[in-house]
């Protein structure tokens, strides 16, 4: 009974969610996200649907296991309940053959689930290590961004016309130069992520410390996590250790003109829930307008060596 109720709830839930979203008044100018497969928002990265497929695969395997095991349990509870005329239980200490069988069957299924995570275009290693980069040199035609997360804002640093990222120093930070770039005029810094579709996108993730130039006080950067549910991608920003992610947006996404979000998925302090930034997929024309230059002519070959605050201190001495 319980199993059936839960399964019914599971199946009814997407419809229910859709109904609710249609009824709920949406914020002005904000398009309501249509819940996609299994309540998930649209997958816009090339590997997003593959990730969903793996979710669905595990959903069915565990769903069947759930129904069988809980169903058997309920059946046993009903069938072998204590009642008139049933005073004895069957005396047995187990059955080795049966136990070996179900143990091996479980192993096979689990190893299968594990191995399928690793293969194909949506495999774990493809997503996490398949950067469009070779020997530290970015492949031509890759859209490159440096992302900085600080308490509690995202900054997106685009290379600028010269196709070269500026060095970053905490001591350069000011209200007009939130990241602390060497020459902020040479780069483009936006509070939102704008990307083209159908090209490889390589992003370097940096956690940014708090530096007050007036009092010259510095606070350690903290962990954040770059999360876009639409990309099906998550990666922590580790203080002092820049990380990388890559993705590619599906062709045709820009046309839809939807607004997505980059949110923070790792607790970073009191403003954690408000740490999000708009994320837009733009056509080449719109992107050029937004950036003020044609990104294709300005692809940097390398990310600059990161300079940490304690290194800055040593240099200053």
């Amino acid at each position: 009974m319980l199993a059936m109720a839960l399964v019914a709830m599971l199946l009814a839930a997407p419809a229910w969610a859709q109904e609710k979203s249609a009824d709920a008044p949406t914020a002005a100018g904000q398009e309501a996200e249509q819940p996609g497969l299994f309540w998930m928002p649209d997958a816009i990265s090339t590997y997003g649907e593959g990730v969903d497929d793996l979710f669905v695969l595990i959903f069915w395997i565990t769903g069947i296991a759930f129904v069988v095991v809980e169903g058997l349990m309920l059946w046993f509870l009903f069938r072998y309940r204590n009642r008139e005329g049933r005073e004895k239980a069957h005396y047995t200490h187990g059955n080795n053959k049966l136990e070996v069988t179900w143990t091996l069957a479980t192993v096979v299924i689990l190893v299968f689930i594990g191995v399928v995570q690793l293969v194909g275009d949506s495999g774990w290693l493809t997503i996490k290590t398949g950067y469009p980069e070779k020997d530290g040199v970015v492949q031509p035609g890759t859209f490159v961004v440096r992302v900085y997360g600080e308490q509690f804002a995202w900054h997106f640093n685009y290379p600028g016309k010269d196709g070269k990222f500026e060095d970053q120093r905490h001591s350069f930070k000011s209200p007009t130069n939130p990241i602390g770039l060497d020459d902020p005029a040479k780069d483009k810094v936006l509070p939102k992520l704008v990307v083209p579709e159908n090209v490889n996108i390589l992003i370097e993730l940096n956690a940014l410390g708090k530096y007050d130039a007036n009092t010259e006080t510095y606070t350690h950067p903290v962990l954040h996590s770059f999360f876009s549910p639409n990309l099906r991608l998550k990666q922590d920003l580790v203080p002092y250790h820049p990380g990388k992610i890559w993705f590619k947006i599906k062709q045709g996404t820009a046309k839809e003109g939807k607004k997505y979000e980059i949110v923070c998925a790792e607790l970073c302090g009191e403003g954690h829930s408000n740490m999000h930034a708009p994320f837009l997929v733009l056509s080449e024309e719109d992107l050029a307008k937004e950036l003020g230059y044609d990104w294709k002519t300005a692809v940097p070959a390398k990310f600059p060596e990161p300079v940490h605050y304690h290194q800055e201190q040593k240099e200053a001495e």
Binding site: G114, F227, L233
Partner: peptide, 17 residues
């Protein structure tokens, strides 16, 4: 059973945290 979802690295990309 729900643990199997997050044990799978790729699926965990979405549901982690």
């Amino acid at each position: 059973l729900s643990g199997i979802f997050m044990a799978a690295t790729t699926v965990d990309l979405m549901i982690h945290d």
